[in-house]
Design a protein around this nucleic acid. Structure first.
Lengths: 119, 119
DNA sequence: CCGCATCCTAACTGATACTG
DNA sequence: CAGTATCAGTTAGGATGCGG
């Protein structure tokens, strides 16, 4: 590989995924397609309105998601992944796979430690 | 793709890369191999001893890097990527590539905006 | 040389109440 | 319904000094 650390753009990509709820919001939109604000709020368990709004704005600013407002009463706002945003899918998939494996790795490490102590 | 958001492990992987200096530390170790603490300190411009120590500990706790202490005076401590840690390389590479492209994407967006305003 | 401890600030996150 | 505003708690990051 050998990325020149001085020219590293990893942080730029990282910055977009970071935020306590961003990956899960993206996954919901990727899985279910267009979603209303309230649908997302229900889907992303535990998130507050304020946080959902904030994270959506940040993703929108990076062109990862699109926001469509229907001028009606009551208001209706729909969010969806942009074509550009879809380019993040392979990265999310890779991280999910690595993360899944890492969970196993940590469990094995823990079991080994426990075994050693009990012997 | 379709990762079940409820079973999402993206955050686990993300947590390991997050930290203002972790990606760059990893890239230095991946590029240059084993490095002493002081070498890393010199390489990672602007980092404080405290932060370098902290980030290295966190990476060590996840088995991404290995820490070898030589019991001598003055002390000598070497850090290197573990075999397991190398499995992160493809992800870093993918993120770097995406980040590089995203930088271009943002510049184009900015230029378009500027053009529209001047017209 | 390496790293810990302390103090400090800014940013992030959350609970809650209010508005068109 | 989809936000905004305010306040309070938590955490990340940085400056500095001490110690083996």
């Amino acid at each position: 590989m050998t990325i020149e650390p001085e020219l590293c753009k990893v942080e730029d990509a990282l910055g977009i995924l970071v935020g306590k709820w961003k990956p899960i919001i993206l996954l919901h939109l990727m899985k279910n397609g267009t979603q209303r604000f309230s649908e997302l709020k229900r889907s992303v368990l535990g998130i507050t309105q304020k946080m959902l709004t904030k994270q959506l704005r940040e993703l929108e600013d990076e062109d990862i998601i699109e926001r469509v407002v229907y001028p009606q009463v009551p208001p209706k706002v729909e969010y969806s992944i942009t074509e550009y945003g879809k380019s993040l899918e392979p990265i999310l998939a890779a991280m999910h796979e690595w993360g899944t494996n890492h969970t196993i790795h940590k469990q094995q490490k823990l079991m080994k430690k426990t075994t050693e102590q009990s012997s």
